[in-house]
Every structure is written in C-alpha cells, then in structure tokens.
Amino acid sequence: MAGKNLDPSSSPRALLGAELRVAREAAGLSQAELGEPLFVSGSFIGQLEAGTRRMHIEFARQIDNILSTNGFFVRNCGALAKSKYPNHFAEAAEAEAEAKTIREYAPLALPGMLQTEAYAREVFIAYQPTATDEVIGELVANRLHRAKLLANPTTPLLWCVIDETLLRRVVGGTKVMAEALRHVASLIRRRRIFVQVLPFAAGAHSSMGGTLKLMTFDAAPPLAYVQGNAMGVLLDDPATVARHSLTYDLLTASALSPSQSLALIESAAEDYEHDQHA
C-alpha cells in the first residue's frame, strides 16, 4: 500500500474504495472475512469498495489494523467527511450520485431532485424558520445541485410515487405550486422520469410510515433509505432492502398509472394558474 494520500480533487470515495479492494485482496481476505471483525456484512464492504458508502473513521482505524496499511485509511477519511448535506442525509446523497436506478416514495413534499428553486426555498424556510437568508440560500443551492443528476439523459432512472397530498398542499402560494408542478410534468413529458400519484382514494397503503428511497448500482448491492424529521437511515441488509422493495411495488400497484398521474399533475398546475389569474 502506497503511503501517499489520495488526491481530494478526484472522487475520494471511489479512490479509497479501490485502494480498499487492493489491500483486502493482497491480505487474502474475502469481503465477508474483512467484514466479520468490523461487525458488518460482506455486502457493506462491497459498497465501501464500490464507493457507494462512505468510510467512517472508526472503520478506517480497524481496517488499517487488520490490513496493516500503516494509517492510510485514517489519513484519507478526512476528504470523505466533508459534505454539503446534513449528516443524516450525506451518505444517501453520495449514494444517489452513483446509483443506476432510484425509486422514491414522497408523502409530504416533492422529491428533492424534482423541486424548483422557489419550492425548495419555501420548504427550507418552513423546516428552519429562524435560519438566515445565507443558510437558506446554501441549502437551496445544494438541493438544486442534486437535481443536476437529471441532466444525464438516461442515468439514473428515476421513478417516483408521490402522494396526492403534494398536489393539494399549497407550498409558497399558487405561483410557486404551478411552476413546481409544470416542472415535474415537463420532466415526465421529456420521458426523463416516471411519476405515479397515489390518490386519496387508495386509502391505507404499504408505506404509511413515511418516505422511502431505493437505489441500485452497477457494481454494488442495493440500498434503501428511510427518512423522518431531521433523521435518516441507510440500509443494506438484503432482507430489509427486499422488504422495502416489496413496499414500493405495492405502492405502484395502488397508484394511478403514469398517464393518469400526468393528467392529474397538469390539471392541478392549471388550477393553480387559474387561481392566479382570478
């Protein structure tokens, strides 16, 4: 193992993951064998190596000891610790950037990657009513930065189920809502995303507990992310991810078809536009 630090201008997680794979294989250990003394699964080690999960300092110390890498991983954890996102969401955001597919259920607000600047600003002000304009501006900028993932014409494939509540809850006024829904409709019409609306008529459903995000990757096991108020958990246990995947499948079965959903979204946008003119 080279003693020199990684270049932080590159992709730190990907580089560190590649170095971890080299060091593990040089030590003659499988992913599961390295994970055992860390009390994590082999799939977790695979996600570290693929760069879809961040290596935390406590793991770095143990890995340096197990693989005799002379403090290499501890020294290079600093680049990974820096994130523009809140601690509870940082790992999920990093995984999002590497994902091949993202499936998301949003019950309360439009998914972050689909929000307009005005809509995101109103959401953050509601979450943090005492924050300064500078703080709110930085939060909004980071959210819009995430949305740049959709500039790629095909990857990631994004499939969202949104609750009808999102269409009826007026965030920031009728002008903000009309703009936000027209933006979502535009992405759908460009065939960049898939969206289904879960209508009020669906009644009780499989994800009454809150938000859900499922991500798949080319070279790593899938992940699930569940989120609450100022908290979130990234899950990699295969059985748990499979259970959440079934939850999402049941949501899509209860939701309106994509074409019906688009019609409802555009109808709601038109209603908000009409209210403005009235």
Results as ranks from 00 to 15, higher is better:
Tyr105Ser: 04
Phe59Asp: 11
Ala224Gly: 03
His277Gln: 13
Arg146Leu: 11
Pro153His: 13
Arg169Gly: 09
Ser259Cys: 10
Leu149Met: 15
Lys175Phe: 05
Arg24Glu: 09
Ala178Asp: 11
Ile193Leu: 01
Cys160Ile: 00
Cys77Tyr: 05
Leu144Asp: 03
Leu150His: 01
Thr211Pro: 15
Val135Trp: 09
Ile188Asn: 03
Gly51Asp: 04
Thr132Gly: 12
Ala263Thr: 14
Arg191Asp: 10
Arg143Leu: 04
Tyr85Met: 08
Phe72Gln: 00
Ala151Gly: 00
Ala255Trp: 00
Thr252Phe: 01
Leu235Val: 02
Gln62Lys: 12
Glu273Asn: 08
Gly17Gln: 08
Leu16Asn: 00
Arg243Pro: 01
Gln31Met: 14
Ala255Gln: 00
Pro153Gln: 11
Thr52Glu: 11
Ser254Gln: 12
Phe59Cys: 04
Ser30Leu: 12
Gln62Glu: 13
Ile63Phe: 09
Asn152His: 14
Leu20Lys: 02
Val22Arg: 15
Gly203Met: 04
Val226Cys: 03
Tyr119Asn: 03
Cys77Pro: 04
Ile125Lys: 14
Ala239Pro: 00
Asn229Ile: 14
Ala99Arg: 00
Ile66Gly: 02
Thr101Tyr: 09
Ile66Ser: 03
Leu264Asp: 06
Lys4Ala: 10
Val241Cys: 01
Val22Lys: 11
Gln62Met: 09
Gln62Ala: 15
Ser83Leu: 08
Glu36Asp: 14
